[in-house]
Write a protein that binds this DNA or RNA. Structure first.
Length: 245
RNA sequence: GCUCGCAUACGAAUUGAG
């Protein structure tokens, strides 16, 4: 089963759903019984391809092997719904999961929070954040980066900075994603100075600028008519871009 | 038969229109 799921997972991740599904069928010929793992890989593949009906169908089909959706299955389906802008349904699914006695973990909460921030409102995201804290699940770097990015996208930089300080005070180490959200937010807010200050701060914590942070800054410089500075920045950092997608 | 291990889920940028 591990062999099959590794292969199926790989195929799903690169979007080769037909082949993944065929391999899934092949399992029976080898008398290999599918488990949650294999189903989750397939469900992930269909969600990523935007085929939610097939994903949900598979999740219901699991019971033929006396399997039932687990926390991975629910998280994957919730993420799929959020990607389609269907956060309300994701929240319903979250409740269904809880009713079935599955305890949500940080990933599950983070998916909902990110979904709310991107599709509904930051307030809802913050609500879920309080909820998770109440339930004894600690917000982590991903939680914060979703919320911070939410504020940045709305150009509410003071609020974003507030969350940034909050996480630092809590002892959570901001990673390159958090910095990237802040750098991009400040750039798009027209505050390149502050964006560069964060790039500096990021370097000081030992993190390296990557394709995301550099694109934000380069784009900001270009749109500010400072293409020479943009080129300079690019040339100074070519080694940080190598090997990135 | 039991226990354990190996494979699955969350956050950031760039891409004007026809």
């Amino acid at each position: 089963v591990v062999t099959f799921s590794t292969l199926i997972d790989g195929l799903c991740k690169v979007g080769e759903l037909e082949r993944a599904k065929n391999l899934f069928m092949e399992m029976a010929k080898f008398c290999v019984i599918p488990n949650n793992f294999v189903y989750n890989c397939l469900i992930f593949g269909y969600c990523k391809a935007g085929n939610l009906s097939e994903a949900f169908y598979l999740s219901s089909e699991m019971e033929r092997f006396s399997l039932s959706p687990d926390i991975f299955t629910y998280s994957i389906l919730m993420k799929g719904l959020c990607e389609m802008g269907r956060v309300k349904e994701a929240a319903k699914l979250f409740n269904k999961m809880t009713k079935e006695g599955i305890i949500a973990n940080s990933v599950t909460y983070n998916i909902l929070i990110d979904g709310y921030c991107k599709n509904e409102s930051l307030e809802k995201g913050l609500e879920v954040c309080s909820l998770m804290t109440e339930k004894g699940v600690d917000p982590n770097v991903v939680t914060y980066s979703s919320l911070i990015d939410g504020y940045c996208k709305e150009k509410k930089m003071e609020a974003a900075m507030g969350l940034y300080s909050e996480m630092v005070i809590k002892g959570l180490a901001p990673d390159v994603v958090v910095f990237s959200a802040l750098i991009d937010g400040h750039t798009k807010d027209g505050n390149l100075k502050e964006a560069f200050r964060f790039q500096k701060e990021m370097k000081e914590t030992g993190l390296t600028p990557n394709i995301f942070t550099l694109n934000s800054l380069i784009d900001g410089l270009c749109k500010d008519g400072r293409s020479r500075d943009a080129i300079k920045l690019f040339l100074e950092n070519t080694e940080n871009i190598n090997g990135c997608q």
